[in-house]
Amino acid sequence: MAENLQFGGTSLWQDALRRLKKNKPAMAGLVVVIILSLVAVMAPLLSPADPLKTDLANRLKPPGSPSAICKNGVYILGSDEFGRDILSRIIYGAQISLSVGIISQVIVTVIGVTMGALAGYYGGMIDMIVMRIADILFAFPDLLFYIGVMFALGPSIYNIFIALALIGWAGVARLVRSQVLYLREMEYVEAARALGLSDARIILRHILPNCMGPIIVSVTMGIPGAILSEATLSFLGLGVQPPHPSWGNMIYAARAYMLSCPWYSVWPGIAIMVTVFAFNLLGDGLRDALDPRLKR
């Protein structure tokens, strides 16, 4: 690795970026992720109506029906059982899904990297305790655990972060630990130690930067899982609470009108699928770009 850095005159990161740019599916995924993020951020500007505004005279109208509450006068994706604009609710739902996906992964990564680095670097008792806790968390049926946590703490988006973080950090910790175990034996780390650098400095400045590749891949791969978990919990009535829109609770509500208004359940499902699909494409691409040995 070190030689490569010198030879080509390009860094590991530049190489990875070049490989990622050449990967068309990954770039397509990235574009979709950027568009979705913009939609989420600009939701108030983009949505034709207030997602909570009801119009009981226009319940369950098919896509394209005239609307009194939408700025453009049309329910582009139809209206729901309270006459609310489905498109606006999907746009606001993007805020929920993306923030759950990203924020939960940030929490998971911070805890996981800290635990993994400490366990890998110091070994011994710390390692034993951290890894045994990780083993226990791995043996939990995760959805059942999330449901239990939501029952215990009450349904809210913040408690979803907590539920996802409580289990999620263990995977990151295992990954980082295995990397640190390998890196701490490298000569450059020994050199750093011989120079008298503090442990904190060695871990933060010399070891962790070399684990960044796998960490980035694991974070990206974790986002779609978190988005799906939030949707599932909201579908079960344990996540985001009505009337606030989440793609999951929209599908739950739509189930009751499956026969008369099939489109109602289809839109939020497509929204989830496209979002998760895009993150998966990006994740696959990042994995290939950051770890050329895995390139298939």
């Binding site: 599932t232 998760v276 998966n280 494409l281 696959d284």
Partner: peptide, 16 residues
């Protein structure tokens, strides 16, 4: 990839 991206409860609803 679509198969691993689709939430299972939605696949169930659409299949029904």
């Amino acid at each position: 990839l679509a198969g691993i991206s689709a939430p299972i409860f939605w696949v169930a609803v659409v299949a029904q």
